[in-house]
Simulated assay, not measured.
Amino acid sequence: MDESVPMTIEGHQRLQEELKQLVRFERPKVVQDIAEARSHGDLSENAEYDAAKDKQGFVEGRIKELNHKIAMAQVIDPAKIKTDKIVFGAKVTLIDVDTDKEVTYQIVGVDEADIKVGKISISSPVGRALVGHRVDEEVNINVPSGVKVYEVTNIEYS
């Protein structure tokens, strides 16, 4: 079973940078904090030791998670995509048919999604609704308040 997860080059690099930061700096610092707390004596009542061990658990868990995500990543360069349809990596400009408000989203992987910067997951309801549409088509998107209708005005791959 193929469990690969689509990810942009930028998203993949961000995960690799976080992993490098954790392995090179955070992990050694936690080990140092544990050693220092251990030197203070009785570990049964040592809050510093407990906090350092908790942080170590978090750091090691995150390293394991990042290694898994990087290993499962199917890195896709949107600039190499040649299609007139909306697919993974597309930067899509939409007009809300009711309000004439323009929005732009880039369709990215689950770990890259950040609505504040206009990046939506391909597996989100909006991302799934947009995939396969072309410029000048209307897209019906189910939202909690009902159905929103958008017109696709531009699709870019860069």
Score class of each variant (00 low, 15 high):
Leu19His: 05
Pro78Ser: 14
Val108Ala: 07
Ser123Ile: 11
Gly118His: 12
Pro125Asn: 07
Pro6Tyr: 06
Ile81Glu: 09
Ile81Arg: 09
Asp136Arg: 11
Asp77Cys: 08
Arg134Pro: 02
Glu3Met: 01
Gln32Val: 01
Val23Ile: 13
Asp50Tyr: 03
Val5Pro: 00
Glu138Trp: 03
Asp114Ile: 08
Pro125Trp: 00
Glu18Lys: 13
Glu102His: 09
Glu45Phe: 10
Lys101Gly: 04
Val87Gly: 06
Lys55Thr: 10
Val97Met: 13
Ile76Val: 15
Val75Lys: 01
Lys69Asp: 06
Tyr49Leu: 07
Lys116Asp: 13
Val126Ile: 11
Glu60Gly: 04
Val131Glu: 09
Ile63Trp: 06
Leu22Val: 02
Gln16Cys: 12
Tyr150Asn: 07
Thr153Cys: 05
Gly11Cys: 10
Ile120Pro: 06
Pro6Gln: 04
Asn67Glu: 15
Asp2Trp: 00
Thr93Pro: 06
Phe58Ile: 12
Val135Leu: 10
Gly118Ser: 12
Ile95Cys: 07
Leu15His: 06
Asp136Thr: 07
Pro144Phe: 01
Gly57Ala: 10
Met1Ser: 02
Glu151Cys: 05
Thr83Leu: 09
Met1Pro: 00
Asp96Gly: 05
Leu22Thr: 01
Lys53His: 01
Val92Ile: 14
Ala47Tyr: 01
Val75Met: 02
Ile76His: 03
Gly109Ala: 10
Pro78Gln: 14
Glu45Gly: 11
Ser39Trp: 10
Arg134Gln: 14
Pro6Trp: 06
Val143Cys: 00
Asn67Val: 05
Lys20Leu: 08
Arg27Phe: 09
Ile63Phe: 08
Tyr150Val: 13
Lys80Asn: 14
Asn142Arg: 07
Val23Pro: 02
Tyr157Pro: 15
His12Lys: 10
Ala79Phe: 08
Asp96Glu: 13
Glu60Cys: 04
Ala71Asn: 06
Tyr157Trp: 14
His68Gly: 03
Asp42Ser: 11
Asp96Pro: 03
Ser123Pro: 00
Asp136Pro: 01
Lys116Cys: 03
Gln13Ala: 11
Ile120Val: 14
Glu18Asn: 10
Gly11Tyr: 07
Gln106Arg: 15
Gln21Asp: 12
Lys20Ile: 03
Val97Gly: 06
Ile76Cys: 04
Val5Leu: 08
Lys116Thr: 14
Asp33Asn: 15
Ala113Lys: 04
Ser39Asn: 15
Gln74Glu: 12
Lys101Met: 11
Ser39Leu: 14
Val103Phe: 15
Ile107Gly: 08
Thr83His: 10
His12Asn: 12
Ile70Gln: 06
Ala47Ser: 03
Val75Gly: 01
Glu48Trp: 02
Gln21Met: 11
